[in-house]
Structures are given as C-alpha cells and as structure tokens.
Simulated scan of single mutants.
Amino acid sequence: MDLNTVTEVISPAGPGQWRPGDAWMGGGTALFGEPRPHVTRLLDLTAAGWPPVTVRDDSVEIAATCTIAQLAERLSEHTVVRQCCHAFLASFKIWNVATVGGNLCAALPAGPMISLTAALDGVCVLIGPDGRERRVPAAGFVTGEGTTVLRDGEFLRAIHLSKTALGTRTAYRRGSLHRHGRSAVLLIGRAQPNGEMSLTVTAATRRPYVLRFPQPPSPAELDAALDTIPAGQYVDDVHGRPVWRRHLTRHYAAQIRTELTA
C-alpha cells in the first residue's frame, strides 16, 4: 500500500532524528500493510548496518532488522526457532524482507516472533529519541492488538535471548482455520532442567500470556492457570471465534503438558 502522505525518507536513521509524524521503518511489510495518514516521514533502520544475529558466550542478540530468512539460517539448529519462522506461512519474498523487530512492533496477535521471544524469556532493548536505552521483557512488550510499550520516538534495537533458554526442551502447537491460514492459536511449552515448566499462549489472545509452574502441572492445575486468562482477551475475528480459540488453547495445552512430562 502506498503511504501517500510520506514526503521524505531518512536513511540511515538513528536517535535524535525523530519528530512527530515520523515512523521507524524496518522491512516495511507491516508498515505498508495499512493506511497511516499521520505518517509524513520514514526513518530507515535497515541501513544502520546492525549484524542480524550476534552470538556471545551466554546469549544471542537478534537485531530488530534481522530478517526472518536470516534468523532461520543463523539459528536453524533450534527447533522452536524454525517452527516460529515457518508459522509465517509466507513466501520467500516476505521471509527476505520482513524483520523480527517489525513483527514485534506490529503487535498482531498472530505474530510468531512475539510467540518465540516471549516463550524464551527474551529481553527487548529499546532506544529513546535521546539515545537512552531501556530494557523490557519480551513477554510484556506487546500490550494488546496493535499496541506496545514503545513511547513516542522510541525504537526497538534488539532482542536478547539467553543460550540457556534456547537450549531448553520445548513443545510447539499451532492451529488455524485453514491449512495455510493465519495462526489462530500458537502455544509454546518449555521444560527447565530443574523441573520448572512454562506455557506461552499467543495468537489466540490479544497479548502474550506466559504461565509458569514450579513443577509439571497436573491437568487440574493447568486448567486453573488457563482460567486466569480473561475471556475478553481471546481474539474475535475472521480467523476464529473466541470460544473456539479458547477450546483449542486448552486442547493444545493438554498435549504440551503430556509431551513435556513424558
């Protein structure tokens, strides 16, 4: 979609350049996906030259401008990363343009990078217009459909994942109304070596919900934890009704509990 109100593109862009009417731009697949009449200038982050993936001794840094193709290639040994990349069900064109950061910032319930980073206890690095940095848990970055914790002028610089989290055992379930349809339910379970278990509910809900258990839960304990998700938080759109999403969430959650406790 043409953004016919845009009169200027700043490339490369960085802190100190933002002004009202600006929009930070990564791959642009989400930015150009709908009308944005308030946007008059684009600040291009892809020209900043950030390495897509930086592996350190104890962590992995994923640049916000890392494309889905680059992520799938660099972290292909991790099953859950591959699964979330393929959850896009997108063409190679999208894979090579869409970015990890753009998927988070779009804050669509079905965003699989939201699912991945929340499930792996990622940390989002945000840069303000004055260059100051703040960090927020990936699980709390998205606050609702299309809304995040980003303040005016802030942009997402990177997401940090610990190697410990990447190395834990996971179980993945995804549901859609159609074989190649948008995710209506996406759940990721994670088992810790010390017996702790977490279950991340996304796509079905307006924001991620991470349920944590000190030990593998019983069926009753799992149901009780799922009951803490308010009924009004289940998404209602053409990709699935709330009652169906809630039912499928519980169905997949039970499967994940069985898989991770086997």
Rank of each mutant, 00 (worst) to 15 (best):
G102S: 05
P37R: 11
E34F: 14
L31E: 06
L120T: 07
H86R: 11
C66E: 08
H86S: 02
E34W: 12
A87E: 14
A107E: 09
A106S: 11
V125W: 06
L42F: 10
W95C: 12
A118N: 09
I114H: 01
I114Q: 09
A64W: 03
G49M: 09
L126T: 08
L104G: 06
L116H: 04
P51W: 10
A63P: 04
W95V: 09
G102R: 04
Q70A: 12
D44Y: 14
F92H: 08
A47T: 09
A47W: 04
R82T: 02
I114E: 06
P112T: 15
T79I: 11
P37I: 15
P51N: 14
W50Q: 14
P52K: 09
N96M: 08
S59R: 07
R82F: 00
G122I: 13
H38E: 12
C84I: 13
P112F: 04
T46P: 08
L43N: 09
A107I: 11
D58I: 12
C105Q: 06
L120P: 05
D58G: 15
C66G: 10
C124Y: 06
M113G: 08
A69Y: 09
P35W: 04
S76T: 10
E73F: 13
E73S: 10
L71P: 01
G101C: 12
A98Q: 12
P52G: 05
E77G: 07
H38L: 15
A87F: 03
G111M: 04
V81I: 15
T65F: 01
R56E: 14
Q70R: 05
L75G: 07
T67P: 01
T54L: 01
G33K: 08
T117D: 06
E61Q: 08
V81G: 01
E77M: 05
L43I: 06
A118I: 03
S91A: 14
T65A: 01
L45N: 04
S115D: 07
A64E: 02
T67D: 05
W50D: 10
S115L: 08
A63L: 09
G102C: 09
T67S: 15
R41E: 14
L45P: 01
E77A: 13
N103Y: 05
T117L: 12
I114V: 15
L45H: 03
L75V: 07
T67Q: 12
G111L: 05
L104T: 08
T65P: 00
N103E: 11
V55K: 06
S76L: 02
